[in-house]
Simulated assay, not measured.
Amino acid sequence: MRTLLILVLLFVPFIAQGSFDRNLFYGISNDLEVTKLQEFLTTEGVYDGPVTGNFFSLTLQGVKNFQAREGISPVAGYFGPLTRTRANEILNVDLTASEQQAILETGAVPVVPEREGNINDVFVSVNTQIGLVLRQIELLQAQIEEIKALQNQVAQQTQVIEQIQQNTTPPPTPEPVVEQAPTPIEPIPVVEPVPEPEPIGTPIVFSNIKSLIVSDWFDISWNVDNPSSISLQRIHYSTNKSLYTYATVYLGASSRMGSIRISRLKVDTTYYFRILAIDKDGNEWFSDINSFRTD
């Protein structure tokens, strides 16, 4: 403890009378320099509060009043280099005038007796210095917390921006698919049956057409009304009702009744047939299309 007091006595600056040697600001308490500032502001007529050594709202307003009067900007209440310089100028003027009056009256410059310090003054000064250091530490800690808060805000905003960019980035445009035109399918031509020309001459009429089916063969019989004019007869038969394709059985000229047996047919199949007669003039005469089904 004694070593600490010795160091304090060696390094704590003593305040010279008649000047302000350090900056003063809001929050300082129990400070001799603040006491001297309050006395100075009271003398200058810009402060009417108590002289306490505490730099609080009344002293802050007094410094602002002094700055506004002296044209010091900004008017913020901080007793810094600009304000201290102007205050010291005023003090020096007042001190010079006082010394000149003393010389006129006494013939010598008055000597200010050396102030005897005591242990209470030392402790007050040390406490003031410690308070200033703690205050600076508090301010630094507050600034560090503000910086951390700003860093967190920046990190959150950066994350939000990245998410927005990810959500708004358009997906890659796919390569256009060139569809090949399908190969046109040529329609299968439909073979229309060629209409048979109307024969010229006396028509041959078929009647009483009968068929007998036995397994894979059948017998057909029929009558014609004009057998003397017939030179040739045929039977057309097919599984196709339109008889586009057909098998032919040739028959010679016959009497009024004709018949024929057709064999080697498919079992369980429907067949269609018609009778064709060709007269001596070459005209073709057809019966209606008939059908039968093998067993």
Rank of each mutant, 00 (worst) to 15 (best):
D281W: 07
S287V: 02
S228R: 15
P113S: 09
A108W: 00
E146F: 03
V46S: 04
M257T: 14
T158N: 10
L134G: 06
R22V: 02
E192H: 08
T269M: 10
E146A: 15
T96C: 02
S229F: 04
F286L: 14
R22M: 06
V133S: 06
I200T: 15
E192C: 03
D48S: 15
I204M: 09
D94V: 06
D225Y: 12
I103K: 10
N240Q: 14
G77M: 03
A76M: 04
Q17P: 06
F273G: 03
N167Y: 07
L41A: 03
V34R: 04
I164T: 08
L150K: 14
G201S: 13
P193Y: 05
I28D: 06
E146R: 13
P189W: 00
P50K: 13
E179T: 12
A76F: 04
T128F: 08
L265T: 03
V205T: 15
K241Y: 07
E146Y: 02
E192L: 13
I289S: 00
D216H: 10
V177M: 07
D268P: 04
L41S: 05
R293H: 10
R256Y: 07
S291G: 00
V109I: 14
I119M: 10
L140G: 09
S287Y: 09
N54W: 02
Q180R: 06
S211I: 09
L232Q: 15
Y26G: 00
N30P: 00
N290H: 13
A149Q: 14
D31Q: 09
T239P: 07
W217M: 11
D94C: 00
Q159C: 00
N30W: 02
I289Y: 01
Q136V: 05
R261Y: 00
Y47K: 10
A149C: 05
N223K: 15
Q17C: 01
S98V: 02
D94E: 12
V177F: 10
F286Q: 06
F123E: 11
N23R: 11
P184S: 04
I289T: 11
D216N: 15
G53T: 04
V205A: 11
A247N: 15
M1T: 07
T59Q: 02
I209Y: 08
V224L: 11
Q17E: 14
N152H: 11
I275P: 09
V109H: 01
I137C: 07
T169M: 12
I275H: 08
I15C: 06
E33A: 11
V191I: 14
L60N: 08
G77N: 03
Q180F: 09
S211M: 05
L134E: 15
A108V: 07
P172G: 05
I90N: 00
I130T: 14
V178E: 10
G117D: 11
I161M: 07
D121Y: 05
V126I: 13
P174R: 10
P13R: 15
Q136K: 07
T158E: 12
D225R: 14
S215V: 12
T52A: 01
S215F: 11
Y47T: 03
S211G: 10
Y246G: 02
V34M: 03
F218Q: 04
E198I: 15
T294Q: 10
V122G: 03
Q153P: 04
D268T: 13
I204R: 13
R264S: 11
E179G: 06
